[in-house]
């Protein structure tokens, strides 16, 4: 082995391999892919329950004493005691005053109760066309017969006062020459 080594020593050229320089393009797989949301700005709608929780209960002044109306604990009518029950006044919601003129002028209505009178009372020489009850004669400011419904509209005096309740009857009476006339008659309620 040593002889062979001596024979070939220096005879074997060793070459280095030089590759020519090449500029290979490097490609990236990355590219700009546009992304689209299905819904760009989704609208959010909320239930309004929280707002409703704070729903104001509005108030209106009533009658000639409306100047005494307040939103926080003053009664509308003089002399009316206000019972401040805890459950009712635990929180005072905001109140708004609105024009009340039309509310104040709302009449009470009385239906015709003639059919319940039956045979209990029959005036002589007259027939009863309508019977309205109960009406506090002393508090009645104005009345009007609603011809559409047959009800009597009663505008009552809101001022505190005592008065007895009455029946108000519309009678048809035979007059001279066979002509019939209408007449309104007040009758006290039984037992009054």
């Amino acid at each position: 082995m040593e002889k062979l080594a001596r024979l070939f020593a220096g005879r074997v050229p060793v070459h280095s391999l030089r590759l020519p320089e090449r500029h290979l393009p490097v490609l990236s797989s990355r590219s700009d892919v546009p992304l689209h949301r299905l819904c760009l700005t989704p609208p959010i709608k909320a239930a309004r329950f929280l707002a409703w929780k704070r729903l104001p209960a509005r108030t209106t002044a009533l009658g000639p004493l409306r100047c005494k109306v307040a939103c926080h604990g003053v009664p509308l009518m003089a002399g009316v005691s206000v019972s401040k029950a805890e459950t009712l006044l635990a929180a005072a919601p905001p109140c708004h005053r609105i024009p009340s003129s039309r509310l104040v002028s709302l009449p009470q209505s009385r239906t015709n109760r003639l059919r319940y009178l039956a045979e209990r009372w029959k005036p002589e020489g007259a027939s009863v066309l309508a019977l309205f009850s109960p009406i506090i004669k002393g508090s009645l400011l104005r009345s009007a017969l609603d011809k559409q419904t047959g009800s009597l509209l009663c505008w009552m005096n809101p001022a505190p006062g005592k008065g007895d309740p009455f029946f108000l009857l519309l009678l048809s009476k035979g007059g001279q020459g066979g002509q019939r006339t209408m007449e309104w008659v007040w009758l006290p309620l039984p037992g009054e």
Binding site: W52, L55, P56, A57, R58, T59, T60, L62, G63, P75, L76, M77, V80, L103, Q108, I136, S139, M156, P158, P160
Partner: peptide, 15 residues
């Protein structure tokens, strides 16, 4: 009151 005269009237906004 007992004559039907309103002493207080409250109403809510429509919901």
């Amino acid at each position: 009151d007992f004559r039907g005269i309103p002493l207080d009237f409250r109403y809510t906004d429509p919901v």
